[in-house]
Design a binder for these strands. Structure first.
Lengths: 159, 159
DNA sequence: ATAATTTATATGTTTAAACATATATGTCAG
DNA sequence: CTGACATATATGTTTAAACATATAAATTAT
């Protein structure tokens, strides 16, 4: 966590969006989820910016590293992604331009792609991993128990 | 809630993104938050689509209705928005084209805009409000206590 | 009063999201 | 084997997000 953030006073969602009443606790939770996402995603964006990649690109690198040295298809990447509506095809195009990933036609299914992380991609992840703590620590005002509880409530939210 | 959803079996985040291990509970909570946001935002997008507006446009309509019949400036809209990085200027342009909002120059501060919801905007909100339940009910697998708890944990997440 | 600074909004540009459609390969029923 | 359908990916187009910069009015300092 950045030092200056220690002086940041946390605000409730009511104050953050200057709205004092909500229809019900469910509406409030939903709005808070949308707001907190924006808060988190912008923190993450700031974190990734010096490395020249976006959140989604990092997400793909992580997925590919998890499979390394195996190849994986674009469809397989998609089911592992956080945003299932991602345009994987063009996301990969941009990452190929940066030489972070390698793509070939899959020999056993000529429709599919064989995608894997490149040496350069692995090295980038290694550099990012050194600073990983500051990524995880974005949420460290929660205790371990609270983080677990939050995750469980989010699972339950989706039915 | 849609009838067909009653047959949907909720999955934990591990299954949803096919990732079994996380660095720590905080990383897991963060990933779950990003994933659940995507789940929620796409549900909401589907909800708003028949009305011809986006989530952000609805958000602005709500804000303007909250002030109605008072005018409010673009900057004031921004501090009330869920996404503080919104391009309010062009968002309003699009809504003016749809005749959902009205914008004039503020006489007491000629830099500022006096924005208010139009009659057409109010009527649209009225139609949407009738179906509001299905918006709030997106999260109704949570009890009232859980929804409150989730909201509190989200507040705490942001320090 | 004037220059410097801040604030409110607009605009230009690049990149990505959203959505529909196309193409090519694979699978399966008959 | 053939036709119908499913799947994997690519591409075209429209719209919006991201970011920098510009303009104009208001505020502040000197």
């Amino acid at each position: 966590m950045l030092y200056c953030d220690r002086f940041y006073i946390s605000m409730k969602i009511e104050e953050e969006i200057k709205q004092n009443t909500f229809r019900n606790p469910h509406q409030k939770a939903g709005i808070n989820l949308l707001f907190t996402y924006q808060w988190l995603i912008h923190k993450q964006k700031d974190f990734f910016k010096p490395f020249g990649i976006t959140n989604q690109q990092y997400n793909i690198l992580r997925i590919l590293k998890g499979q390394y040295p195996k190849n994986i298809s674009g469809a397989d990447i998609k089911v592992r992604m956080l945003d299932k509506n991602s345009d994987v095809s063009r996301l990969l195009d941009r990452m190929i331009l940066k030489k972070l990933v390698v793509k070939n036609q899959c020999p056993s299914d000529k429709r599919a792609a064989d995608v894997s992380i490149s040496q350069k991609g692995l090295e980038l992840l290694k550099v990012i991993d050194i600073k990983n703590d500051s990524l995880d620590n974005i949420l460290d005002s929660l205790t371990i128990e609270e983080a677990t509880q939050l995750s469980n409530l989010l699972d339950k939210s989706r039915r």
